[in-house]
């Protein structure tokens, strides 16, 4: 029996945090694995790999997306912002600062996803109060149970933006 071969690698370019990154990936590589394993951007987390937890949330062309449900080859040329790209010149993004101020995390594992998701939420402009934040942030699980502090942090960032 012949060796079982896996599909050919395909060259793509991703614009990650403003930087053009060329890489070759097999078609079944998710954007999440490309970021973590290939580009060594491990700030984006894997909590389920099935679109169930939100830990892998990144911003693609400004919209929040579960990167584990996104194949890297489908995003050739896309602009991707990860948690590593939110602070500018050493100054934290208002959401990052608000998360620290309100202790909106414990273990920190869901946190990059929460913050990217919150950034997407603010850009959507759909959430007007705490109840709407809760509802629209419910795709991002936090097993440490930091939810009330996450809501408070987002409210702080919302009021200052």
């Amino acid at each position: 029996m012949a060796d079982i071969t896996i599909p050919e690698r395909i060259p793509i370019t991703l614009v990650v945090n403003g930087e053009r990154r060329a890489l070759e990936v097999v078609p079944w590589t998710t954007l999440l694995d490309a970021l973590r394993d290939r580009l060594e951007l491990t700030g984006t987390k894997k909590g389920c790999d099935h679109g169930q937890c939100g830990a892998c949330t990144v911003l693609i062309d400004g919209r929040r997306v579960n990167s584990c449900l996104t194949l890297a080859v489908m995003k050739d040329g896309a602009e991707i912002t990860t948690i590593e790209g939110l602070a500018k010149d050493g100054t934290l993004h208002p959401l990052q600062q608000a998360f620290i101020d309100h202790d909106a995390f414990q273990c920190g594992y869901c946190t990059p996803g929460q913050i990217c998701s919150a950034a997407g939420l603010l850009a959507e402009g759909r959430a007007r109060n705490a109840d709407e934040i809760r509802e629209l942030m419910s795709g991002n699980l936090c097993r440490c149970g930091a939810y009330p502090n996450i809501v408070a942090a987002i409210e702080q960032a919302m009021s200052r933006s």
Binding site: G43, K46, E84, Q97, Y109
Partner: peptide, 21 residues
């Protein structure tokens, strides 16, 4: 007092077991 490891956690700098190269 705010968490002293807060900055590492909100910037993605904190490395977990499966993330060491």
């Amino acid at each position: 007092t705010s968490r002293v490891d807060g900055r590492a956690k909100v910037t993605g700098a904190a490395k977990y077991a499966g993330e060491f190269a």
